[in-house]
Design a protein around this nucleic acid. Structure first.
Length: 946
RNA sequence: GGGCGGUUAGCUCAGCUGGUUAGAGCGCCUGCCUUACAAGCAGGAUGUCGGGGGUUCGAAUCCCUCACCGCCCACCA
């Protein structure tokens, strides 16, 4: 491509840049990690999106922020790996596929069978995984796609199998009882997040339980009378004077022939609620279950999986459904005169999302991971500083949750997931097992615990058992359940790197660097990754956890399908381009607040209705602005030869913009180190727009017309543009690459000083270094004075409505020491402020005659600034009255400020107690203001006399 | 019920280790198609910093309290 072939359209075309550069980056392999590199490793594993559906804006935010970090570190020269992948999301995915099956074909999973259903889910997964990956690519994500993983793929499966095997062998996993949320319609356990609540008007029934061998009664209040058939105790508060004496005695449980103990339990019972007596049904209520554990009560399961009453219930109720049992129990109690009262009571019904039927707490046997030691170690990882949360307040939720040390239930009654690698055999003996598996270290076994639903032996194997290992006389049956999705997610940082194999990737990139996620999964995911990382690899999985804000709609609600307020990032990319999406999200990613996006529905040209947000309008002009600044620079490089520039050739304004750029690089570094993306975006936007475009380019225009100054001005523009696009690249990768590549054609040689580079893509160009750019306080101070002067004249022109072509001839009064500074900006003033010849005078000396005369005639407009007084003769354009009003307002402002300072300085306590430095500063400030006031008073007086 | 965060311009948000006349983007008003950019330029207006109390010479910033909004966790016999 030659310079002539360059297309430099006025409007930046995001789509063209995206279509052109993303495939190019992939082809060149810039995103491919090299574990053999000697560079410092930097690795982020993507929080794997669920394959349940397409990505929304929350994912876009998180992945934009990760890509910013990744692209930054890649440019810094680190050996970078951003590991992509997706999550099988157990119940969520199975549920969507089952729901669709029911809708489209009126079939349940039982109609299809396990194998066929799983096949359907794989097809679903393939579709959505492709969609998700293409969304990430559309956003510009620089993942190493050659390593894309899926939580059910063979590499991850191997890690899961090895982990479970190790846990089993170490006795860290056990089979135990637990109350699960049982869906009696679908005959399956459902997860907590698959339950919804409905407030309904129910009843609170009071039932008399006769105390054995006594005339006394205890009255219990319940919303679920049918569960009384499974009661195994009645609890009262141990300090309750009404019942204290009964603790240790028994009641005769009505409708049954059982006697159950009266226990004292301060945790379960609130003396003030109801009657102060609580029936305890450990097998069908979570609190009662805990109470049962505390008091070692019997646990009587009343239900069959289909929700009918089990043989553990008295004969009269067996085989009946829950509702029917309730009716009968109430009728029978009534008949026995034991039903005291029925009161209306508001209660919350737990319903299954999947079948819309009531959830029954149901006691079942599940696999658990022992958490005590694990949690202790994982807490230590944070308290010792091996893992740091950003913002740090989130460490508290992590530690609080882990401190409960509740064992982790890892089995799920699903078909979609990692099958639990346990085989049961009831008939074998240990001797026979020893013989069958002699010499094999890949099979371990343990005896089933007493009280478990299984008898005989539990075998865990690294490879699937065929079932034939024990010979024809013994049946081996594999556990039908799968593992909790979070089990495989917990291994994600090391499983994706190849553990348990000792891969070069694992050696190079583990522990990874940063984990970026939302706060709602700090416990479910982050804590468990730390635990499993420590267990499997002996080291924490990452050193920093960054918690990003949550995206909400205009009403502060989460985005969700059911509310219809979700935004597809691809829609935003189509409307605004990927750079604007990313810039908008980064600009909104503040540390303290969640991110509120007022949603609008709009209809696209193709008729589709999509959600969008005004927030992207705010970010929209930026890429184009940058593009046009670059276009200006490049259009002035036709004769650029790239000769090195010696520092002494630089003008004041060159030194100013380079010094300002230096400060910007330093600020950008600080923001990136601290995960302050909003600050990063703002810093770079401000530099681009306010310093580079508004001033530096304008300063350069006259110099580019001067043959002598032109090469230096060109070199500095190239240097600044080159550095700026490198700084911006992590946020807006496409427009910066477009500029980088175009710039390479017109200015193959860059670098005002030593830092020349000619990277073939900005993706791998060096990150700017602060020390390559000169600091220059003097230039900064001087250019600030120029800017003030130019703004002041523009202000006068605009406020006095001077015609466009009017060329007033102003005077600037400054202290003697500043005269030279201002005079150096001569050319700039004339073009940028639109003035004719102008003069700088010493404020201690008399004004030039023409100005003095204009003042006498009252035709002078003035601006009295801190270091500078600007006097513009307006001649016929003067409006004396308006001028007086302005000066009076100016005077009032100054007096108000002086008054404020006087109040402070007149306050003895301030002078005594405030830092001396501050008092001095206030005194100086007062002097300046007084001087300005004097000047304004003088001007006003002249005007009034005229 | 416990915990966390928020309440600053019409909208979305910075500022909060106390100390200039409280800022930005978008929107709004005025004037400009000034050959980088009208998705632009120049200029302008806009705030009892949620209410109340306290600490301090000084509070948007620190403390207490109330109200409202959001989130997490627990619970509702």
């Amino acid at each position: 491509m030659t310079a002539a072939e360059q297309e430099l359209p006025k409007l930046y075309d995001p789509k063209a840049a995206q279509d052109r550069w993303y495939p190019h980056w992939l082809e060149k392999g810039y995103f491919t990690a090299d574990p053999t590199s000697n560079a410092q490793p930097y690795c982020i594993v993507i929080p794997p999106p669920n394959v349940t559906g397409a990505l929304h804006l929350g994912h876009a935010l998180n992945n934009t922020l990760q890509d910013i970090l990744i692209r930054w570190r890649r440019m810094k020269g680190d050996s970078v790996l951003w590991m992509p992948g997706t999550d099988h999301a157990g119940i969520a995915t199975q549920a969507v596929v089952e729901r669709r099956l029911l809708q489209d074909e009126k079939k349940t999973r039982h109609d299809l069978g396990r194998e066929a259903l799983v096949k359907r889910i794989w097809a679903w997964k393939d579709e959505y995984e492709a969609r998700i990956l293409s969304q990430l690519q559309a956003m510009g994500a620089s993942c190493d796609w050659s390593r894309t993983r899926f939580t059910l793929d063979p590499i991850c499966a191997k890690a899961v199998r090895h982990t479970f095997f190790k846990l089993f062998a170490d006795d860290k996993v056990y089979r135990g009882k637990r109350l699960v949320n049982w869906d009696t319609h679908l005959r399956t356990a459902v997860a907590d997040d698959e339950i919804y609540y409905e407030d309904t008007k129910g009843s609170l029934w009071s039932i008399r339980y006769p105390v054995a061998e006594s005339d006394e009664f205890l009255v219990v209040a319940t919303t679920r009378p049918e569960t009384m058939l499974g009661d195994t105790a009645v609890a009262v508060h141990p300090d309750d004077p009404r019942y204290k004496h009964l603790i240790g005695k028994e009641v005769a449980l009505p409708l049954t022939d059982r006697r159950i103990p009266i226990i004292g339990d301060g945790m379960l019972v609130d003396m003030a609620f109801g009657t102060g007596c609580v029936k305890v049904t450990p097998a069908h209520d979570p609190n009662d279950y805990q109470t049962g554990l505390r008091h070692k009560l019997a646990m009587i399961n009343l239900l069959n999986p289909d929700g009918t009453y089990h043989e553990n219930a008295p004969a009269a109720y067996r085989g009946l459904a829950v509702k029917e049992v309730r009716k009968r129990v109430l009728a029978d109690l009534e008949a026995a005169g034991l039903l005291l009262e029925t009161k209306p009571h508001d209660l919350r019904l737990n319903l299954s999302h999947r079948s819309n039927t009531a959830i029954e707490p149901y006691l079942s046997d599940q696999w658990f991971v022992r958490m005590d030691e694990f949690a202790e170690k994982a807490i230590g990882a944070v308290t010792s500083g091996q893992v740091t949360f950003h913002p740090e307040r989130y460490a508290k939720s992590y530690i609080d949750w882990l401190s409960e040390k509740r064992d982790w239930c890892v089995s799920r009654q699903l078909w979609w997931g990692h099958r639990i690698p346990i085989w049961y055999c009831e008939t074998i003996t240990e001797e026979e097992l020893n013989v069958a598996f002699a010499g094999r270290s890949d099979v371990v076994w343990r005896q089933a615990e007493a009280g478990s639903d299984r008898r005989g032996w539990l075998l865990c194997a690294l490879e699937d058992l065929t079932g034939q290992e024990l010979g024809p006389n013994h049946r081996l049956e594999q556990d039908g359940d799968v593992l909790d999705t979070w089990f495989s997610s917990a291994l994600w940082p090391h499983s994706t790197l190849g553990w348990p194999e000792k891969t070069p990737e694992l050696a190079k990139y583990y522990p990874t660097s940063v984990l970026s996620t939302a706060r709602d999964i700090i416990t479910l995911w982050v804590a468990r990754m730390v635990i499993m990382g420590q267990y499997n690899c002996g080291a924490v999985p990452f050193t920093d956890v960054f918690i990003h804000p949550v995206i909400q709609d205009g009403q502060g609600r989460r985005m969700s399908k059911s509310l219809g307020n979700g935004i597809d990032p691809v829609d935003i990319i189509e409307m605004y381009g990927a750079d604007t999406l990313r810039f908008g999200l980064a600009s909104a990613a503040t540390e303290t607040q969640d991110l509120r996006l007022p949603i609008e529905k709009i209809r696209l040209e193709d008729g589709r209705e999509v959600n969008t947000s005004d927030r992207f309008e705010q970010a929209k002009p930026f890429a184009n602005k940058l593009w046009n600044a670059a276009r200006f620079v490049m259009s002035n490089l036709g004769d650029y030869i790239g000769e090195p520039v010696r520092p002494e050739q630089l003008s004041i304004e060159d030194r100013w913009i380079l010094a300002t750029l230096r400060a910007t690089v330093s600020q950008a570094n600080a923001s990136l180190e601290k995960f302050q993306f909003e600050k990063l975006a703002k810093t770079l936007r401000d530099f681009t727009w306010n310093d580079f475009c508004d001033w530096a380019i304008e300063f350069a225009k006259p110099r580019l017309k001067d043959n002598e100054q032109r090469p230096v001005a060109q070199a500095v523009l190239v240097e600044v543009l080159d550095t700026l696009v490198r700084l911006l690249h992590p946020i807006v990768p496409f427009v910066t690459e477009q500029i980088w590549q175009s710039l390479a054609v017109v200015a193959p040689i860059r670098g005002v000083f030593a830092s020349r580079n000619s990277a073939e893509s900005i993706c791998v160009a060096p990150w700017p270094k602060v020390e390559d750019l000169p600091a220059d306080d003097h230039a900064q101070s001087r250019v600030d004075l120029w800017k003030d002067g130019i703004s002041a004249i523009r202000n006068i022109r605009a406020e006095r409505n001077l015609p466009k072509d009017a060329r007033p001839v102003p005077v600037m009064r400054v202290a003697a020491g500043e005269m030279e500074s201002l005079a150096a900006g001569l050319a700039m003033f004339q073009t940028m402020a639109g003035v004719g010849d102008w003069r700088v005078v010493n404020s201690a000396e008399d004004l030039p005659e023409d100005i003095e005369q204009a003042r006498a005639r009252g035709e002078l407009a003035a601006k009295v600034l801190d270091r500078l007084e600007i006097l513009v003769p307006l001649g016929q354009f003067i409006d004396k009255e308006a001028e007086k009003v302005k000066l009076r307002k100016n005077l009032a402002d100054l007096e108000k400020q002086i008054g404020g300072i006087d109040a402070k300085l007149g306050n003895a306590s301030f002078v005594e107690r405030a830092p001396a430095e501050l008092v001095l500063q206030q005194r100086q400030k007062r002097e300046e203001l007084q001087a300005r006031r004097g000047a304004v008073v003088e001007l006003l007086a002249a005007l009034e006399q005229s």
